[in-house]
Design a protein around this nucleic acid. Structure first.
Lengths: 338, 338
DNA sequence: CCCGCGGCCGGGACCGGTCCCGGCCCACCA
DNA sequence: TGGTGGGCCGGGACCGGTCCCGGCCGCGGG
């Protein structure tokens, strides 16, 4: 029943007061080197470790950042989380997790935030896949800095946002196809309630417009299955086949590839294909997939860095990360004879 | 500068003592219903929320479980984490994250564990991809219940383990191939330092042995790239081609598919292919991949449930989860003419 | 009528830190 | 030699809960 040693115990051992121990632990300057050494020896001897709960209670600084995950469809969540955890550790913070799956009533998110602040977290990062999930935040007065990792925004000046520029990514993809000579580019979009999907549609449309090229829009849900289904529909349609397809993400692109294989449509000879995400293994699809890479780890670490700056007094801020086109084998110039 | 209301404030408002407030909050029976109502009204009015840090300090129960992630190569980490978070929430616990990437000195893990217990976590789950990462735990006396999510074990009776039965998974895959009539089954293994990879090799070998079939073993690292490289080597070898390939995981299987496509080897007509994991999209590879499904979310939630039981006084335990073979289009009977 | 008992409630001592404030000692200078 | 200022250290009051212990009051039995 011997509980771990406290500052008092160390103090007794070193023949000083608990205050002095506190000073040593916190690197306070006004302690004589010799006293400091004695205290450190005592700490060593007793195996003393500061109780961070007590510290958090008094100082109101818990050194932890809360992360809430809303929506479980986030395929690339792990990479984001990795970035978050790494950056937080770097900055001396812990990460406390809270997720909210399934149906999201508005009050639900607020409740989660509450429970997190009950925990005395110093800041909160929310990673969400669609704005509806966080609309509850619109007018809310925040007790701590909050950063949202999501495309799209919510009208609340206290909120920071981090996102990769989805529209730019889409433009990059379409521009690449246009440069290759394609004049009819279909887009198989992801679930429209997800902002990323909408932004990609916008980018696709905008780029198409600048070139005066033709487009076909089909609506899926980011799953490989939907890509598969949509690609079949594309082939079956009475209308003219596009010469290029821009899939909502790499998963959908996989579905497209599968459908085209069944239909005998050759990629990239018959139609070019571009994905989005650059998921693990995309380079080893057949053919290797041209896609738009999003740096998810960077997304996560940026959110934390933003939060740390806000903790330092900076204002909320909006940050866009540029995605990167990676050209592989699934895109080529359209056939001249078509 | 008005800090949030405390029990004292509520007590004053309700005309009772802070003790009674505590009793109400904790659902203690001996409070008159009428008093309880008055206190609850006061709580409502002031928007009181219990300070969980103070609670943790005094009661030594933080209601949080620490999770340490060691090694970042865990492809399916997110699904595990999801299971962890869900189960923890279910049981009324928070999840505090700590990861340890890169090179792992032995003391490093112990330090991470220490920092976690400094946080007063009540239990710890470690998810690791290879036993070396946690060897530091072998003789350690644990302050709190610890469960390891990993194949393989470490000689420490205080530790619980949760794993999916990799060997069984491998046997399922090989058995399927054997049943189809294959007599020469190559295995492209993942990084051998990872225990999962070794267990799969064992299963493959054991099943081969019972059938007296032939095998070829090539060593990769779980990446699509390594699958690609190894498949090429398989084709280039002077020796006879196997009629079936069991890849270390679905990523490697993707690489194999890519290599076979270049070589003009048809799957499953020329050679059958089985993967492992059933990653997202595996059903839409060309051809749809036969693979072994691991239920990662279940893995995570099992770990938490185990921990909760240990918190309740149960002994450490070892738990194996059975994987499941999912047969798709990449496997078929070998050609009779070969 | 008194005592005992049980339901309800309050006093107050912690938990293990942080931090303001104030006191000691000693060197330095007038 | 006395004053003073600064470096070093300690006392003690919190932070906001939990929980042991003990007091009050009303009721039933001896």
């Amino acid at each position: 029943m011997n509980r771990p040693p406290g500052m008092m115990d160390v103090a007794r051992e070193a023949g000083v007061s608990h205050i002095t121990v506190s000073r040593v632990v916190n690197g306070h300057p006004s302690v004589r080197p010799e006293t400091r050494a004695r205290v450190e020896a005592a700490i060593q001897k007793l195996g003393y470790r500061r109780n961070s709960v007590a510290r958090a209670l008094k100082s109101r600084r818990s050194s932890t950042i809360g992360v809430v995950i809303v929506g479980s469809e986030l395929f690339e969540l792990p990479r984001i989380l990795l970035g978050v955890e790494t950056a937080a550790k770097q900055a001396g913070y812990w990460v406390s997790l809270a997720s909210r799956q399934g149906e999201s009533t508005t009050g639900d998110l607020v409740e989660t935030l509450q429970r997190l602040t009950d925990q005395s977290v110093e800041a909160i990062a929310i990673v969400a896949d669609h704005p509806l999930a966080v609309e509850a935040l619109s007018g809310l007065v925040l007790e701590v800095p909050v950063a949202v990792v999501m495309s799209g925004s919510v009208p609340n000046p206290g909120l920071s946002f981090v996102e990769v520029d989805q529209e730019l990514g889409a433009r990059l993809a379409v521009r690449h196809l246009l440069d290759l000579g394609h004049r009819h580019i279909a887009h198989l979009t992801g679930a429209p309630r997800i902002f990323d999907a909408r932004a990609r549609v916008d980018g696709w449309q905008a780029e198409l417009a600048t070139a005066g090229a033709e487009g076909t829009l089909l609506e899926g849900d980011f799953s490989a299955e939907s890509g598969f289904r949509l690609a079949h529909r594309l082939c079956a349609a009475g209308t003219e086949m596009p010469t290029a397809v821009f899939a909502g993400n790499d998963q959908m692109a996989m579905g497209v590839l599968a459908a085209f294989a069944e239909r005998g449509v050759k990629v990239p000879q018959d139609v070019s294909l571009v994905g989005f995400d650059d998921m693990k293994g995309s380079g080893y699809l057949v053919p290797a997939l041209t896609t738009v890479r999003q740096d998810f780890a960077h997304l996560g670490s940026s959110a934390i860095e933003l939060l740390v700056r806000m903790l330092g007094g900076d204002a909320a801020e909006r940050q866009k990360i540029a995605p990167e086109l990676v050209v592989r084998r699934s895109t080529a110039a359209p056939r001249v004879d078509s």
